[in-house]
Write a protein that binds this DNA or RNA. Structure first.
Lengths: 179, 179
DNA sequence: CCGTGCATGTAAGCAGTTACATGATTTC
DNA sequence: GAAATCATGTAACTGCTTACATGCACGG
């Protein structure tokens, strides 16, 4: 109700709903999952937690240890409802945004530089696949429901596709220019 | 030389090297090509053009018509060299960044909301494919060399892949949960 | 001439990133 | 008990986006 959540706000709220308790846990959780299609820096996370608490979507409790301040959170019923509402918002699909310096380089590359760029992009995606298999998919499998696992699988498959595509491009570019 | 170019600077310089003459032409060019993996707003474009001129990488000429100010640009030899140097920079591949609100929704979706999200993502990529075929690939084909065309083809194929993957996901999610 | 769309550019504000600061906890 | 690593958070800067302002060209 009230205002619909922003995507960034929803991401933080979502992590709390899925079980993250401190800002730090949200941060770790983001790093092993959501980060691949919605990046968030620490300051954003802490700022959103404050706002969420102010709006009653999460409940905070002081949990200072010694001299180190620490605050833990738990989602409220209102918070869970707001997250569901955000997921269900209708409207046209927001655009997917891609941002890739290497693709930009390739766009402007002269013929002789292109193969190396394709190879670099292939290697990059191969490493991403490894990271999905080793870290992200296992973490997703431990989540409460199975949408995180589906999204993680999609991420891996996307990078597999890119790696394969770039390998093909390397081959095309390496072949002596036909005609 | 001096400092290596930032990606955004290089994008604008690159468009000028490829033939864009006014800020407006850069803007249009970006919209039909680079925008799909490196978005740029108007203020950035105009700001970069000023900086590029100050640094001697493009040469500007006043071309005011009546009361409307207008400035046209042309790449200098130093500019073309700087672009080549930027393309050839070694170092580890910069990461690909993806940012997608719908994928974020899917991640946090409860079971009943998931199919609709997958369908929305499929349609979105289908439309992107149409746009690539109708606008972006033809424009890329008219560029000076053929790397733009390769990148455009990759963009189309990427969205074809996503559309197909989401169609499959819809089918999986619609099937009554097995076991 | 008058409206509609194209061309050209700017102001202001928020979101996001980089980098750091510091205390607890484990390891050797 | 010193060093390394984990945990927790913040300050300061910058880039980008949203939204607008305005003039010219051309069809009717």
């Amino acid at each position: 109700m009230t205002e619909p959540l922003s995507n960034t706000t929803a991401a933080v709220l979502g992590m709390v709903v899925l079980g993250a308790r401190s800002g730090y846990e949200v941060r770790r959780g983001v790093e092993r999952s959501v980060r691949f299609f919605w990046a968030l820096g620490p300051p954003q996370i802490y700022a959103e937690l404050k706002r969420l608490e102010r709006d009653g979507l999460v409940e905070g409790r002081d949990d200072t240890r010694g001299a180190r301040p620490r605050r833990t959170y738990e989602a409220t019923a209102a918070g869970r409802a707001a997250l569901r509402a955000w997921v269900g918002e209708g409207g046209p699909a927001a655009p997917l945004e891609l941002r890739d310096p290497e693709l930009l380089r390739l766009f402007f590359a002269e013929a002789d530089a292109a193969v190396a760029l394709a190879a670099a992009m292939r290697r990059r995606s191969e490493q991403a696949v490894e990271r999905f298999v080793a870290e992200i998919e296992p973490a997703a499998a431990r989540a409460g429901h199975d949408r995180p696992a589906l999204v993680a699988r999609f991420g891996r498959e996307l990078h597999e596709f890119i790696a394969e595509r770039m390998a093909r491009l390397e081959a095309e570019l390496a072949r002596p220019p036909e005609r």
